[in-house]
Computed example of a mutant assay.
Amino acid sequence: MGIIDKLNKDFESRVRLGIMSILMVNEWVDFTEMKNLLNITDGNLASHSSALEKSEYIEVKKEFVDKKPKTSYQVTPRGRAAFKEHLSYLEKLMKS
């Protein structure tokens, strides 16, 4: 099995790579901020964050603030470990 085969398919999308990169350096990021940072649509963010949540790489918190719905994201310990491993394999691939 080559290094490229060890890359995590859950992080192949540029949007998922972006979500994880942002969450690795921030405690919680809300939906609007994430959408603006990545310059993507509501639906795009919703579908990719849902996939990452299903894999237990991120936690999604939904709450009401001043009677308005607010969705926020945080990386999980499992997500942090998986993303670090993915980046490590990317680095090895670039050096090979």
Rank of each mutant, 00 (worst) to 15 (best):
G2R: 13
I4F: 11
D5K: 09
D5W: 04
K6I: 11
K6L: 11
L7C: 03
L7P: 11
L7F: 07
N8D: 12
N8F: 00
D10N: 12
F11C: 04
F11T: 14
F11Y: 07
E12L: 13
E12V: 03
E12H: 12
S13M: 02
S13L: 02
R14A: 14
V15C: 00
V15I: 12
V15M: 01
R16K: 06
R16I: 06
R16P: 09
L17K: 12
L17C: 00
G18S: 10
I19W: 10
I19H: 05
M20W: 09
V25W: 03
V25H: 05
V25T: 11
N26V: 11
E27K: 01
E27A: 09
E27S: 14
W28G: 13
W28Y: 15
V29E: 01
V29L: 01
V29W: 00
D30E: 02
D30L: 15
D30R: 09
F31Q: 15
F31I: 03
T32D: 14
T32W: 10
T32S: 10
E33R: 11
E33K: 13
E33N: 14
E33H: 14
M34C: 01
M34V: 05
M34P: 05
K35T: 05
K35P: 10
N36Q: 13
N36K: 14
N39G: 14
I40D: 07
G43F: 05
G43P: 03
N44D: 02
L45H: 08
L45P: 00
A46L: 10
A46M: 06
A46I: 05
A46Y: 14
S47D: 05
S47C: 10
S47G: 00
S49E: 06
S49A: 15
S50D: 04
S50P: 11
S50A: 09
S50T: 04
A51W: 06
A51F: 11
A51H: 09
L52E: 00
L52R: 03
E53A: 07
E53P: 01
K54C: 09
K54M: 06
K54V: 08
K54H: 12
K54N: 13
K54P: 03
S55D: 09
S55H: 08
S55N: 07
E56R: 12
E56S: 13
E56M: 11
Y57L: 00
Y57N: 02
Y57V: 01
Y57T: 04
I58A: 01
E59H: 12
E59C: 08
E59D: 15
E59V: 14
K62I: 08
K62G: 07
F64K: 11
F64L: 14
F64W: 05
V65Y: 15
V65M: 10
V65N: 15
D66P: 00
D66R: 08
K67N: 07
K70P: 06
K70R: 13
S72K: 04
Y73L: 01
Q74D: 07
V75H: 06
T76M: 09
P77W: 03
P77M: 08
R78D: 13
R80F: 03
A81H: 12
A82W: 01
F83H: 08
F83V: 00
K84R: 08
K84I: 06
K84L: 08
E85G: 00
L87G: 14
L87K: 09
Y89T: 02
Y89R: 03
L90K: 13
E91A: 12
K92I: 11
L93D: 11
L93C: 10
L93P: 10
L93S: 13
L93Y: 13
M94T: 11
K95E: 14
K95D: 12
K95L: 15
S96T: 10
